[in-house]
Amino acid sequence: MKVGLFIPCYVDAVFPKVGDACYRLLRHLGVDVTYPQGQTCCGQPMANAGFAKDSATLAKRYDDMFKGFDYVVAPSVSCTAFIRLQYPHILKDANHKCHIADNTLDMVEFLHDVLKVDSRLGKFPHKVSLHNSCHGVRELNLSSPGELMEPRFNKIKDLLQLVDGIEVVMPERADECCGFGGMFSIEELAVSKQMGEKKLARHMATGAEYITGADCSCLMHMAGIAAKQQTKPEIEFRHVIEILAEGL
């Protein structure tokens, strides 16, 4: 099984540690993982802002780069969801055969559903508040959305339970959006800020030392707000894969 690692642009530039954690964890689990050079962006920011057409070249580049792999994995639910759900349309409009959309998985999906990891991982003796990102919940089914009357599950939480010493808690309104929304955070400054502050406050109310989740963009949004507000006590942000790879 050949696995390609996709590290989206903002993870590459702002959160290289998350990319590093993905690589280390996959290697630790014995996965034949490759990081092809020349990656940039999946095109989601433009598409969500209303310029999906402009994403076509990026989609083609991505598809060409990864089409030989059995799976492509990425530590970002919204990029993964965009590739899986929108690339088939975007590439169809651009007359390009789409190869890899269905096999692009978020790291959490890959670990939980493909590798079915159940061995103990490292150690993280901390109280952690879990952030469910909207596209993870409602597009990738990483957890059951609170709005649907279906059996409850949370794949991120399942994986975190493999780490020794961790205490995972959920904030109130666990599935409510943090207000990032890509271009939304620029176009709707006030509402984005408000939603982020309220979401952050609900995470803080759990008494957790860390906030974790499967999407760096939500974490980046809340971390930026926390830093600006200088919230006390200070709360730290870790991508879920960083926690899973801790000490490996």
Binding site: I7, V11, D12, A13, V14, F15, P16, K17, V18, G19, D20, Y23, Y35, Q37, Q39, S185, I186, L189, S192, K193, G196, E197, M220, H221, A223, G224, I225, A227, K228
Partner: peptide, 22 residues
């Protein structure tokens, strides 16, 4: 910088991930 309306600017690391891998 609209990002600064709600956020403190993030700290960019010295090296992006792809450089690390290189």
């Amino acid at each position: 910088n609209p990002w600064a309306y709600a956020h403190k600017m993030m700290k960019f690391p010295k090296k992006p991930f792809h450089k690390d891998m290189e």
